[in-house]
């Protein structure tokens, strides 16, 4: 018997708010909760407390707030993408980064960064993400039924595409393209309001599409043919899901680099908490993904402070052992 999901959704929502607040206050410069609240309140037009110093205002609103929101958007998007991939392929190991969609988006994003800076990276990353996702769809048909082979094909694709990212990075000026560690482990350091706006719109649009297909994803648990017998256009559903996943992977990779394991760890953990129904699971995964990335980023900024480590190191620290656990019991149920 499963627990009622509402309780978990509320707890997850609360965790995201708490983690966001901690991220705003903690770091190389410690800011008290009252100062954080004062800055936020004044930004929405409420004149409370003493006027914060310019330094505090800049740290909270210009540096940390876009970083927190971008981390939440990326985490929520990647977890929703992983949920959808696992749903349509009935494969608990399916994840946008593991299947090579993230690295594919990275190739486009690196080229986009050379041509058009941070926003160019997001736009080109999105295009490349969708194209790579379509390629993954073709590979999925060829490896039909062999789940492990499908994932390995994705890993091989990702390795080759990451190599191409490397060629672009090392062949370009350091000032135009983020360093290689950004494309391997991700980073929220350079988060800006401009990048956040574009990435958030793309991720929101793509996740909205995923929500419209939630029931179809449920029916696909019966099998492709069985879902087809119930009136689902299976091929179209998979292609639309892949396109949405490509957009999410592209927008997030363009904005924060390749942050691994979010789309793998979070949906599997959430399925245990709230069950497999995708309407609820997508919400839980988005909250869980946002919380996971915010927690990882908080740790990235504080465990070796003042040195900041890449956020992907922390997600991999949790994700690697989690993958080993999943491989021991690789079942969608």
């Amino acid at each position: 018997m499963r627990q009622r999901p509402t309780k978990w959704l509320m707890l997850l929502g609360l965790a995201v708010v708490v983690l966001a607040a901690l991220n705003l206050g903690m770091g190389a410069v410690g800011i008290s909760p009252s100062d954080v609240l004062t800055v936020l309140a004044r930004r929405v037009g409420l004149s409370v407390g003493n006027e914060p110093t310019q330094g505090v205002e800049a740290v909270v609103w210009t540096i940390r707030m876009p970083r927190v929101l971008l981390g939440a958007v990326a985490g929520a998007g990647l977890a929703a993408a992983g949920t959808a991939l696992q749903g349509v392929f009935r494969n608990p190991l399916a994840d946008p980064q593991l299947l090579g969609i993230g690295p594919g988006a990275g190739v486009g994003a690196a080229i986009g960064a050379v041509a058009g800076g941070a926003r160019g990276a997001i736009v080109a990353g999105t295009v490349a993400g969708v194209l790579t996702a379509m390629l993954v769809g073709r590979l999925a048909r060829r490896t039909a039924g062999d789940q492990a082979r499908f994932i390995l094909v994705g890993v091989a694709l990702g390795a080759a595409l990451t190599a191409w990212v490397g060629f672009i990075v090392f062949g370009s000026s350091r000032s135009t393209v983020p360093p290689m560690e950004f494309w391997l482990l991700g980073s929220l350091t350079a988060s800006t309001w401009r990048a956040l706006g574009l990435a958030a719109v793309l991720v929101a649009a793509a996740t909205a599409v995923l929500f419209t297909l939630a029931r179809s994803m449920d029916l696909l648990a019966l099998g492709d043919r069985e879902a087809g017998h119930l009136g689902i256009d299976v091929r179209r559903t998979i292609m639309v899901v892949l396109a949405a996943v490509g957009i999410i992977a592209g927008a997030t990779v363009g904005a924060v680099g390749v942050v691994g394991f979010v789309g793998l760890v979070v949906p599997n953990a959430m399925r245990r908490l709230v069950g497999p129904s995708h309407r609820v699971l997508l919400v839980a995964s988005m909250l869980g993904g946002a919380g996971f990335v915010l927690a990882a980023d908080l740790a990235a900024r504080t465990v070796m402070s003042p040195i900041e480590i890449p956020v992907g190191l922390l997600t991999a620290l949790v994700g690697g052992p989690f993958l080993l656990l999943l491989l021991r019991k690789a079942s969608y149920s």
């Binding site: 648990a221 019966l222 099998g223 069985e226 399925r271 069950g275 497999p276 969608y332």
Partner: peptide, 11 residues
């Protein structure tokens, strides 16, 4: 059909 997946996570 004859073949049915046996890892269905739904009740």
């Amino acid at each position: 059909g004859q073949t049915r997946p046996n890892d269905n996570p739904f009740t």
